[in-house]
Design a binder for these strands. Sequence first.
DNA 1: TCTGGGGTCCTAGGACCC
DNA 2: TCTGGGGTCCTAGGACCC
Length: 419
Amino acid sequence: MIERTFDMVPPILHVDLDAFYASVEQLLRPELRGRPVLVGGGVVLAASYEARAYGVSAPMGVRAALARCPGAVVVSGSFDRYVELSKAVMEICRDHTAAVEQISIDEAFLDVSGSRRITGEADEVGRSIRRRVRDEVGLPISVGVASTKFLAKVASARAKPDGMLVVDPADELRWLHALPVRVMWGVGPVTEERLVRHGIDTVGRLAATEPAALARMLGAGSGRHLHALAWNRDPRRVGGGGRAGSVGAQSALGRGLDDDRELGRVLLRLADRVSGRLRKKGRAGRTITVRVRFEDLRAVTRSVTLPDAVRSTAALHHAGMPLIADARRSRPGPVTLVGVSVSNLEDAGPVQLEIPFEPGDPLRPGSPEGDAHLRVDEQVDRARARFGKEAVGRASVLLDRRGRGVPDAFRELAEKDDR
DNA sequence: TCTGGGGTCCTAGGACCC
DNA sequence: TCTGGGGTCCTAGGACCC
C-alpha cells in the first residue's frame, strides 16, 4: 500500500482567529489581557477563553453570563477595528497563496497546492501565517492542515486555542473515525441526539453505517452527505462559495410588540436595510419572506413569490405587511422578533421597473408612484453615501429607537456581502 | 442555555404541466 | 373519462453554521 502524502493530495489550510472580537479587545486594551472579556450589550457576541472557562458562550444573555463569571469585563465592541484587523489577516493569507476563500470575518480556507513550491510545505505555510498574524497584527490564530476543506476545518477546531494541527493524509481516516459525531459539519444537537440514539456516537460508527440506514434516520440528502464526509469524501474546492442566494434582516423586539402600526414601522426599517443592500449589489428578488417570532420563541414564516423581482423599500414593505398580518392570525400574542428576507434573486439593471402587485396598485411599474419609489430610494442611497447612514430616512423610522437591538455596525459584520 | 443577526440547505406536501 | 409517472415551482418549517 502506498502511503498518501501531500505530494499526492493537495493540502488545504483552514485558518480561524481565536475568540476574534474578544481577542481584539484584549489587544487594544492591555489591561484586559488574561481577564475574562465579554463583547456585547444585551447578549454576548463573543467571549474570551478566560470567560469560556466559566461556561460562558455566545449567544448567552449578558446577565446570565455575569452570573456564571462575575469577574468578566463587558465591552460594547470596536466594530471598525474588527473589520480593519480582519483585512490585515486576510492580506497575510494572500501573501502565501492567491487561493483564499474567506467564509466569515474571522475564518478562511487556503489552497496551497499551487504555491507550495515557492512558499514552502503546507505546514511551513501554516507556521508562517501564525507567526506573521501574531507579530504583525497581534492576534492568536489557529490553523488546520488536511486534504479536504472538511478535515482542515475539523483540524483547526481541534487545534484551538492558538495552535496548529496537520492531519497526515496517510492516517486521516483513523484520526477522523475516533472523533465524536458532533465534530461533523451538519451535526448539531438534534442530529447528534438522533444518531446517538442509534448507537452512533463516533465518526467511525457513522462511516460504518449503511447509507440507506442513515437516510432513514436523517433523510436522504443528509444521510448520504454525512456518510460521504465520514469517509472524507468532500468534493468542495477552495474558492467555491458563489453569490448570496438571499438577503435579509431581522430585529429582536425585547419584551414584544402587539401593535400593528409599531410592527409596521419595524418592518419599514428592515425593508429599508434590505432594499439598500440589494441596490448596492445590483440585485432584486421575487420571493419575500417574513419571519415572526412569539414569546415562546416559536417562529412562523410567511412568504410570497411575485411575478417580477423587486428591490425598493416601498415594495418590500408593501409585500411584507399582509404577511405579518397572516402570521399573526396563526398565533395570538405579542411579537418578539420580526425578520424579512428576499430570495429568488436576479441581477437588476440600473433602472428596473417593478411589477409586484395587482393592476391598479400604486406600486405597479410604469405607474408614476412605482417608479418614484425607486428613485426616492436611489436619492436616499446617494445622500447616505455622502453624509452618513443616519443622515436621511423616513421620519417614523429615524425617530423610533425601538427594534434596533444590536448596533448596526455589528449587523454589517455579519453580512455575507462581497468580501 | 431561554438566545443576536447574517446566512445555507433539506424536507414534504400541493399545484400544475406534460 | 380515467389513469400513471415525472418534473418544476411554491410554501412552510426546521436544522445547522459563523
